[in-house]
Amino acid sequence: MSAQALLSVRGLSINYGHVNAVRGIDLDLAAGEITALVGANGAGKTTTLMALSGLVKKAAGAVHFDGQDISAMAPHRIVASGLVQVAEGRATLTTLTVRENLDLGAYTRRDGATARARDVDRIYSLFPRLAERATQMAGSLSGGEQQMLAIGRALMAKPRLLLLDEPSMGLAPLIVQDIFRTLKRINAEGLTIFLVEQNVKQALKLAHRAYVVESGEVVLQGRGAELLGDPRVQAAYLGH
Protein backbone atom coordinates (compact mmCIF):
# COMPACT_ATOMS: atom_id res chain seq x y z
CA MET A 1 0.00 0.00 0.00
CA SER A 2 1.35 3.39 -1.03
CA ALA A 3 2.28 5.57 1.96
CA GLN A 4 0.52 8.58 0.45
CA ALA A 5 -2.63 6.75 -0.67
CA LEU A 6 -5.89 7.76 0.97
CA LEU A 7 -7.50 4.77 -0.76
CA SER A 8 -5.57 1.69 -1.78
CA VAL A 9 -7.05 -1.25 -3.69
CA ARG A 10 -5.20 -4.51 -4.29
CA GLY A 11 -6.31 -7.43 -6.43
CA LEU A 12 -9.97 -6.42 -6.64
CA SER A 13 -12.04 -9.03 -8.48
CA ILE A 14 -15.81 -9.09 -8.87
CA ASN A 15 -17.98 -11.76 -10.49
CA TYR A 16 -21.53 -11.60 -11.80
CA GLY A 17 -22.44 -15.28 -12.01
CA HIS A 18 -19.87 -16.80 -14.36
CA VAL A 19 -18.80 -13.40 -15.71
CA ASN A 20 -15.54 -12.02 -14.30
CA ALA A 21 -16.50 -8.31 -14.44
CA VAL A 22 -13.44 -6.94 -12.62
CA ARG A 23 -10.17 -8.85 -12.79
CA GLY A 24 -7.64 -8.20 -10.08
CA ILE A 25 -7.21 -4.45 -10.39
CA ASP A 26 -4.93 -2.30 -8.23
CA LEU A 27 -5.62 1.39 -7.54
CA ASP A 28 -4.01 4.10 -5.41
CA LEU A 29 -5.79 7.41 -4.78
CA ALA A 30 -3.61 10.16 -3.37
CA ALA A 31 -5.11 12.48 -0.76
CA GLY A 32 -6.11 15.85 -2.21
CA GLU A 33 -6.11 14.69 -5.83
CA ILE A 34 -8.77 13.96 -8.44
CA THR A 35 -8.32 10.45 -9.82
CA ALA A 36 -10.32 9.31 -12.85
CA LEU A 37 -11.29 5.80 -13.90
CA VAL A 38 -12.14 5.84 -17.60
CA GLY A 39 -13.07 3.30 -20.23
CA ALA A 40 -15.83 2.13 -22.52
CA ASN A 41 -19.29 0.99 -21.45
CA GLY A 42 -19.12 -2.39 -19.73
CA ALA A 43 -15.43 -2.07 -18.81
CA GLY A 44 -16.15 -2.54 -15.09
CA LYS A 45 -16.02 1.08 -13.92
CA THR A 46 -19.35 1.26 -12.08
CA THR A 47 -18.88 -2.24 -10.65
CA THR A 48 -15.56 -1.11 -9.18
CA LEU A 49 -17.15 1.90 -7.48
CA MET A 50 -20.01 -0.20 -6.10
CA ALA A 51 -17.50 -2.61 -4.60
CA LEU A 52 -15.55 0.21 -2.94
CA SER A 53 -18.82 1.43 -1.38
CA GLY A 54 -19.67 -2.07 -0.15
CA LEU A 55 -22.70 -2.37 -2.44
CA VAL A 56 -21.32 -5.23 -4.55
CA LYS A 57 -19.69 -8.37 -3.17
CA LYS A 58 -15.99 -8.80 -3.91
CA ALA A 59 -14.73 -12.15 -5.15
CA ALA A 60 -11.20 -11.23 -4.03
CA GLY A 61 -9.07 -8.28 -3.08
CA ALA A 62 -8.50 -5.77 -0.30
CA VAL A 63 -9.60 -2.13 0.08
CA HIS A 64 -7.88 0.16 2.58
CA PHE A 65 -9.20 3.64 3.31
CA ASP A 66 -6.92 5.93 5.30
CA GLY A 67 -5.06 2.86 6.54
CA GLN A 68 -8.19 0.99 7.66
CA ASP A 69 -9.29 -2.25 5.98
CA ILE A 70 -12.86 -1.59 4.78
CA SER A 71 -13.05 -4.66 2.50
CA ALA A 72 -15.85 -6.30 4.51
CA MET A 73 -17.38 -3.18 6.08
CA ALA A 74 -21.13 -2.51 5.74
CA PRO A 75 -22.10 0.31 3.32
CA HIS A 76 -23.48 2.64 6.03
CA ARG A 77 -20.27 2.29 8.02
CA ILE A 78 -18.21 3.05 4.92
CA VAL A 79 -20.20 6.28 4.50
CA ALA A 80 -19.69 7.14 8.18
CA SER A 81 -15.92 6.59 7.74
CA GLY A 82 -15.85 9.34 5.09
CA LEU A 83 -16.14 7.50 1.77
CA VAL A 84 -19.32 8.65 0.00
CA GLN A 85 -20.63 7.80 -3.48
CA VAL A 86 -22.83 9.75 -5.91
CA ALA A 87 -24.62 7.02 -7.83
CA GLU A 88 -24.98 6.79 -11.58
CA GLY A 89 -28.40 8.15 -12.55
CA ARG A 90 -28.38 10.56 -9.57
CA ALA A 91 -30.89 8.62 -7.38
CA THR A 92 -32.48 11.70 -5.88
CA LEU A 93 -35.53 11.10 -3.70
CA THR A 94 -38.07 12.57 -6.08
CA THR A 95 -41.02 12.95 -3.66
CA LEU A 96 -38.93 14.91 -1.15
CA THR A 97 -37.90 18.55 -1.47
CA VAL A 98 -34.41 19.71 -2.35
CA ARG A 99 -33.80 20.70 1.28
CA GLU A 100 -35.09 17.34 2.58
CA ASN A 101 -32.75 15.51 0.22
CA LEU A 102 -29.83 17.55 1.54
CA ASP A 103 -30.83 16.92 5.16
CA LEU A 104 -30.94 13.18 4.51
CA GLY A 105 -27.37 13.33 3.20
CA ALA A 106 -26.28 14.15 6.76
CA TYR A 107 -27.92 11.10 8.36
CA THR A 108 -24.63 9.64 9.65
CA ARG A 109 -23.54 12.89 11.31
CA ARG A 110 -23.76 13.64 15.03
CA ASP A 111 -22.44 17.21 15.06
CA GLY A 112 -25.67 19.12 15.59
CA ALA A 113 -28.21 21.14 13.63
CA THR A 114 -26.10 24.32 13.50
CA ALA A 115 -23.19 22.59 11.73
CA ARG A 116 -25.57 20.88 9.29
CA ALA A 117 -27.37 24.15 8.49
CA ARG A 118 -24.00 25.80 7.83
CA ASP A 119 -23.18 23.05 5.35
CA VAL A 120 -26.55 23.43 3.62
CA ASP A 121 -25.64 27.11 3.10
CA ARG A 122 -22.30 26.02 1.64
CA ILE A 123 -24.08 23.66 -0.80
CA TYR A 124 -26.34 26.54 -1.84
CA SER A 125 -23.28 28.71 -2.49
CA LEU A 126 -21.77 25.95 -4.66
CA PHE A 127 -25.06 25.36 -6.49
CA PRO A 128 -27.20 28.55 -6.37
CA ARG A 129 -29.96 26.82 -8.36
CA LEU A 130 -30.57 24.51 -5.42
CA ALA A 131 -31.12 27.50 -3.15
CA GLU A 132 -33.71 28.84 -5.61
CA ARG A 133 -35.48 25.46 -5.64
CA ALA A 134 -35.06 24.51 -1.96
CA THR A 135 -38.79 23.87 -1.39
CA GLN A 136 -39.44 22.17 -4.75
CA MET A 137 -39.78 18.40 -5.08
CA ALA A 138 -36.58 16.85 -6.38
CA GLY A 139 -38.58 15.12 -9.11
CA SER A 140 -39.48 18.49 -10.64
CA LEU A 141 -35.82 19.44 -11.23
CA SER A 142 -34.00 19.21 -14.56
CA GLY A 143 -31.40 16.49 -15.04
CA GLY A 144 -28.57 18.93 -14.38
CA GLU A 145 -30.22 20.25 -11.22
CA GLN A 146 -30.76 16.69 -9.99
CA GLN A 147 -27.06 15.98 -10.53
CA MET A 148 -26.19 19.10 -8.51
CA LEU A 149 -28.54 17.88 -5.78
CA ALA A 150 -26.99 14.39 -5.77
CA ILE A 151 -23.51 15.91 -5.35
CA GLY A 152 -24.77 18.33 -2.70
CA ARG A 153 -26.44 15.53 -0.76
CA ALA A 154 -23.20 13.51 -0.80
CA LEU A 155 -21.24 16.56 0.42
CA MET A 156 -23.65 16.83 3.37
CA ALA A 157 -22.15 13.57 4.65
CA LYS A 158 -18.81 15.42 5.04
CA PRO A 159 -16.81 12.99 2.89
CA ARG A 160 -13.04 12.79 2.85
CA LEU A 161 -13.30 10.87 -0.43
CA LEU A 162 -16.11 11.53 -2.90
CA LEU A 163 -16.86 8.84 -5.49
CA LEU A 164 -18.71 10.08 -8.59
CA ASP A 165 -20.27 7.71 -11.12
CA GLU A 166 -20.83 9.24 -14.58
CA PRO A 167 -21.75 12.77 -13.44
CA SER A 168 -21.95 14.06 -17.04
CA MET A 169 -24.35 11.36 -18.28
CA GLY A 170 -27.29 12.76 -20.24
CA LEU A 171 -26.49 16.39 -19.48
CA ALA A 172 -26.05 19.36 -21.83
CA PRO A 173 -22.42 20.42 -22.41
CA LEU A 174 -22.81 23.75 -20.58
CA ILE A 175 -24.21 22.00 -17.50
CA VAL A 176 -21.36 19.48 -17.62
CA GLN A 177 -18.82 22.33 -17.67
CA ASP A 178 -20.57 23.93 -14.69
CA ILE A 179 -20.51 20.70 -12.68
CA PHE A 180 -16.87 19.96 -13.54
CA ARG A 181 -15.92 23.52 -12.50
CA THR A 182 -17.57 22.90 -9.15
CA LEU A 183 -15.74 19.59 -8.73
CA LYS A 184 -12.47 21.40 -9.40
CA ARG A 185 -13.40 24.00 -6.77
CA ILE A 186 -14.26 21.49 -4.02
CA ASN A 187 -11.08 19.57 -4.82
CA ALA A 188 -9.07 22.81 -4.48
CA GLU A 189 -10.64 23.18 -1.03
CA GLY A 190 -9.12 19.82 -0.07
CA LEU A 191 -11.63 17.09 -0.99
CA THR A 192 -10.22 13.95 -2.64
CA ILE A 193 -12.31 12.82 -5.62
CA PHE A 194 -12.57 9.52 -7.52
CA LEU A 195 -14.35 10.09 -10.82
CA VAL A 196 -15.79 7.39 -13.08
CA GLU A 197 -16.60 8.99 -16.40
CA GLN A 198 -17.37 7.95 -19.98
CA ASN A 199 -16.46 11.43 -21.22
CA VAL A 200 -12.77 10.56 -21.36
CA LYS A 201 -11.55 13.95 -22.57
CA GLN A 202 -13.35 15.90 -19.81
CA ALA A 203 -12.22 13.43 -17.15
CA LEU A 204 -8.56 13.46 -18.17
CA LYS A 205 -8.51 17.25 -18.39
CA LEU A 206 -9.82 17.44 -14.81
CA ALA A 207 -7.90 14.56 -13.20
CA HIS A 208 -4.46 14.72 -11.64
CA ARG A 209 -4.12 10.98 -12.22
CA ALA A 210 -6.13 8.40 -14.15
CA TYR A 211 -6.57 4.71 -14.82
CA VAL A 212 -7.88 3.27 -18.09
CA VAL A 213 -9.84 0.01 -17.80
CA GLU A 214 -10.77 -2.47 -20.48
CA SER A 215 -12.72 -5.67 -19.84
CA GLY A 216 -12.27 -5.33 -16.08
CA GLU A 217 -8.50 -4.79 -16.17
CA VAL A 218 -6.30 -1.69 -15.83
CA VAL A 219 -4.48 -1.31 -19.15
CA LEU A 220 -2.98 2.18 -18.71
CA GLN A 221 -2.32 4.57 -15.86
CA GLY A 222 -0.58 7.89 -15.41
CA ARG A 223 -1.06 11.61 -15.00
CA GLY A 224 -4.27 12.87 -16.57
CA ALA A 225 -2.48 15.22 -18.98
CA GLU A 226 -0.10 12.46 -20.10
CA LEU A 227 -2.95 10.06 -20.88
CA LEU A 228 -4.83 12.80 -22.73
CA GLY A 229 -1.87 13.01 -25.10
CA ASP A 230 -1.30 9.23 -25.33
CA PRO A 231 -1.87 7.99 -28.91
CA ARG A 232 -3.50 4.77 -27.58
CA VAL A 233 -6.05 6.76 -25.57
CA GLN A 234 -6.66 9.15 -28.46
CA ALA A 235 -7.24 6.28 -30.89
CA ALA A 236 -9.50 4.31 -28.57
CA TYR A 237 -11.57 7.07 -26.94
CA LEU A 238 -11.01 10.48 -28.52
CA GLY A 239 -11.56 9.67 -32.19
CA HIS A 240 -8.06 10.67 -33.30
Rank of each mutant, 00 (worst) to 15 (best):
T108R: 13
I151K: 03
Q147Y: 02
G222K: 10
R122G: 05
I34M: 12
A117K: 12
I14P: 04
I34N: 04
M156S: 05
K45V: 03
L163Y: 06
A91W: 14
R129V: 12
E88V: 02
S125F: 00
I34V: 14
E189Q: 15
L93I: 13
L102C: 07
M50K: 14
A87F: 14
L12R: 01
S71F: 08
N187Y: 00
R209Q: 13
V84T: 15
S8C: 11
G112F: 10
D66L: 01
L149C: 06
V213W: 00
N101Y: 03
D121T: 11
G82T: 03
L55P: 08
L174C: 06
N15G: 11
S142E: 01
R185P: 10
L27N: 10
G105L: 08
A21I: 09
A188L: 11
T48A: 10
E132V: 04
I14Q: 06
T46H: 06
I123H: 01
A5N: 10
I193H: 07
T48D: 04
I186D: 00
M50N: 15
V63P: 00
S2Q: 15
T35P: 05
R129K: 15
Y124H: 15
S215N: 13
T46K: 05
E226D: 15
L191K: 05
Y16I: 01
F127D: 05
I70G: 01
L104F: 13
N199T: 01
S140W: 03
R118P: 02
L141S: 07
L155I: 06
Y107T: 10
T114R: 15
L83D: 02
A203L: 01
A21P: 00
L7D: 08
L162M: 06
D66H: 07
V218K: 04
A157V: 09
A60G: 11
M148C: 08
V9G: 03
E197S: 07
L195D: 04
E189W: 09
L206Q: 05
A235D: 14
L149W: 01
R133S: 03
Q234M: 13
S168D: 03
H240E: 14
A74H: 11
L93N: 04
D178Q: 15
Q147C: 09
